[in-house]
Nucleic acid binder design. Structure first.
Length: 423
RNA sequence: GGAGAGGUGGCCGAGCGGUUUAAGGCAGCGGUCUUGAAAACCGCCGAGUGUAACAGCUCCGUGAGUUCGAAUCUCACCCUCUCCGCCA
């Protein structure tokens, strides 16, 4: 959520910056609602002050029959207050509902552009594998080795669900442990294991609600929603809290499955593991001092990159442009991994800073010093990494001419010493 | 699922219709004293909104209601704890 005061005082600038995302008239209607709200507030408060003073007076009069005039007068004032409050609540609800649907203002460093074609490539890492045979896509490798079963996944649930088997299941689990160990032991993150379903307040805090409900899986009876990313429960850990400045930055990592409806992506990536309704991810989340968030985004991205470096898989880092960043994000780096079986780079991690956008929604604050007023922290998060897509990258980059797949050296201890997956 | 108890400021905890601007304590901050520390004593010490600064207004789990006036009374919901049942 944007700062109302900022919008009020910088309406044109805010609108202009928002429009670099590609839409138009993001803030239309704000001025009217805001003026109306403030007028009602002022009127109501004046009447309440009057009533409070009169109530005190009535309290002091011992013989209440002497106070009848005042009481009758206040009865009318209270009626007036009630109707103003009702109207105010209506306007208030409209205004906050409106503000919750306005996306974040892009960071000044986010390159301006209309679509993913305008994203900037910042750096490349690793050598693309030179294969003396035609590389296969991971779904063929996985099916041939008997470690990925797409048909039975569909039988058990439906499209975009996959059954992992044997060394495939083990590899997924090895990757989860490998990533968590790296981030906790080497990068200073504290491991969390949060609930996989959350309430509406949590989804609103990070920005999934109210605008993106159709992307979420919902439970029927308690009104809970399955998390689309660990970002939601982990960022909401500190919802409504005032943190100690000395505790910042707070670094959390968490493994969770992620559940996404993928509404609107019918026919996209229908083969293989790339786009599933349920996938595993190890997430990195930070709560930082506002002055440190830019730095911390660089570090967080480097932490995610480290996973691919240790696995020795080539990748590149992209700076997303204003037209391609997510609703809550101010600035985003995508890490794209090389997939020889598909002859392209695919997103495997998305690392973002949200500025105070989520902190304002979720009311997460800190104090500059003991006596200072609380201020909003900055929140950041990134995949470290998407596990299923990492498994895809291993299958495609480490595939051999005979159909087997080598296990990256860093992962072998997590695979019981297994060096190669064969039929 | 059944029965009971309870949700008050960073924490503990009083208050159950009108000097409550939420008692008191702990923690925290500042000071006196001290070589220094501790102890003792004194002062400050929730959040939001608003103002040049005051003032004003709102907030005692959430929402509705009764009343001139609600932390306090009524109703609904949420959450926590205890016991019973069931259960990995």
């Amino acid at each position: 959520m944007l700062d109302m005061k900022y919008i009020r005082e910088n309406l044109e600038e805010a609108e202009k910056r928002l429009q670099t995302r590609g839409g138009s008239a993001y803030l239309a209607g704000f001025r009217d609602l805001d003026d109306k709200r403030r007028a009602l507030l002022k009127e109501g408060e004046a009447l309440k002050a009057l009533r409070n003073a009169a109530s005190e007076e009535i309290a002091r009069i011992k013989d209440k029959s002497q106070a009848q005039d005042k009481i009758l007068e206040m009865r009318e004032v209270s009626q007036k207050i009630k109707s103003i409050d009702e109207e105010l609540k209506l306007v208030d609800d409209q205004l906050s509902a409106f503000l919750l649907t306005v996306p974040n203002v892009p960071h000044p460093a986010t390159p301006v552009g209309a679509s993913e074609n305008d994203n900037l490539e910042l750096r490349k890492w690793g050598k693309l594998p030179q294969l003396d045979f035609t590389p296969k896509p991971h779904w063929e490798i996985g099916e041939q080795l008997g470690i990925l079963d797409f048909e039975r996944g569909a039988k058990l649930t439906g499209a975009r669900f996959t059954l992992y088997r044997g060394a495939g299941a083990r590899l997924e689990r090895a990757l989860i442990n490998f990533m968590l160990d790296l981030h906790t032991d080497q990068h200073g993150y504290t491991e969390m294991l949060p609930p996989f379903m959350v309430n509406r307040d949590s989804m609103t805090g990070t920005g999934q609600l109210p605008k993106f409900e159709e992307d979420l899986f919902k439970l029927v009876d308690p009104d809970y929603l399955l998390i689309p990313t660990a970002e939601v429960p982990v960022t909401n850990i500190h919802r409504g809290e005032i943190l100690k400045k000395s505790d910042l930055p707070i670094l959390y990592t968490a493994y969770t499955p992620c559940f996404r409806r993928e509404a609107g992506s019918y026919g996209k990536d229908t083969r293989g593991l790339i786009r599933q309704h349920q996938f595993n991810k190890v997430e990195l989340v930070k709560f930082t001092h506002p002055s440190e968030s830019d730095n911390e985004l660089e570090k967080l991205t480097a932490n995610a990159e480290k996973v691919l470096q240790l696995l020795e898989i080539p990748y590149r880092v992209m700076a997303l442009c204003t037209g391609d960043i997510g609703f809550s994000a101010a600035k985003t780096y995508d890490i794209e991994v090389w997939l020889p079986g598909q002859d392209c780079y695919r997103e495997i991690s998305s690392c973002s800073t949200f500025g105070d956008f989520q902190a304002r929604r979720a009311n997460i604050r800190f104090r500059e010093d003991e006596k200072a007023k609380p201020e909003f922290v900055h929140t950041l998060n990134g995949s470290g990494l998407a596990v299923g897509r990492t498994l895809v990258a291993i299958l495609e980059n480490y595939q051999q001419a005979d159909g087997s797949v080598l296990i990256p050296a860093a992962l072998r201890p997590y695979m019981g010493g297994l060096e190669r997956i064969t039929l």
